[in-house]
Design a protein around this nucleic acid. Sequence first.
DNA 1: TTAAATCGTACTATATTTGTACTATATCAA
DNA 2: TTGATATAGTACAAATATAGTACGATTTAA
Lengths: 151, 151
Amino acid sequence: MFKLSRLTDYAVVILSSLEKECPNHVAVGFVAEQTHLPEPTVSKVLKLLGKADIVTSVRGATGGYALKRQLGALTVLDVVVAIEGPLSVVACVENAVDSCVLENSCMMRGRWALVNDALKDALGSVTLRDMMQLQCGRRGAAKKLLAEGRI
Amino acid sequence: MFKLSRLTDYAVVILSSLEKECPNHVAVGFVAEQTHLPEPTVSKVLKLLGKADIVTSVRGATGGYALKRQLGALTVLDVVVAIEGPLSVVACVENAVDSCVLENSCMMRGRWALVNDALKDALGSVTLRDMMQLQCGRRGAAKKLLAEGRI
DNA sequence: TTAAATCGTACTATATTTGTACTATATCAA
DNA sequence: TTGATATAGTACAAATATAGTACGATTTAA
């Protein structure tokens, strides 16, 4: 149904929680408590975000995760790619030719690239800060976004 | 993985095939032959496109389907919505409150609306004709799109 | 009336996603 | 050095969504 995975939604929640403790590293357990998400799930998401260089991790006792970039410098595209892998709306666009169901008769190969790029632009134009500003009911912020033609 | 369903891809192929016979109604079997897609699947897709008012259908002998709008007046968003239902990137955005997994502690409710709108704009800005023009290797057409800043 | 075509619904197999568990590795502190 | 604690990596079972198919009902031309 053209949906983002639930884990991507969790990622946004978790990143928002990390920002509050910003310069400090916090453990998975603490984040789980703050977000009311199950600990193994939080762990999984943070691992993925770490691989994508969105958060830093420190191992060992007193270790934990911390935000690496500010939310304003982090786009929805970054998060989606971190959790769900490279964006490709249909298998044809980025995968090998032989994975295409229509095989030789496929008249569409590569056509979706246009759509793919448009979606990439769309996701890349919204930062997590934009989302947060709308979230907290700060109408001033929303107005600003509106004035800039971003929403 | 944030993919369009395969049926949506089929829909584009099928619509392209319908255009060739444009004013005439053609039967599912013929379209299936042209597109090398299984007949039941073509039938399913065309039924959905009919409900969305993208194609017209005539029942009975000598009946069939025909394009209702030109491909240039048909956006990818139209097709996606026809096949996959209203666009909502996460359950929170358009569904009832109680379907939200995070329930009362959900700090994100409504936040994705911004992203949702951005994606809608992106999909709504690409017509099927745009896709076709790229498809057939008509470099002139591609150049035109490029000049217009559409790709 | 018959043949040909769409319409509607339901069902099954497959693929994907989600959530969890377990083991290995790294770091700090006593 | 050793133990406690935390992340890293892998693997897997359950739940969900998708894809494809089948079948009977309905409609229309000949």
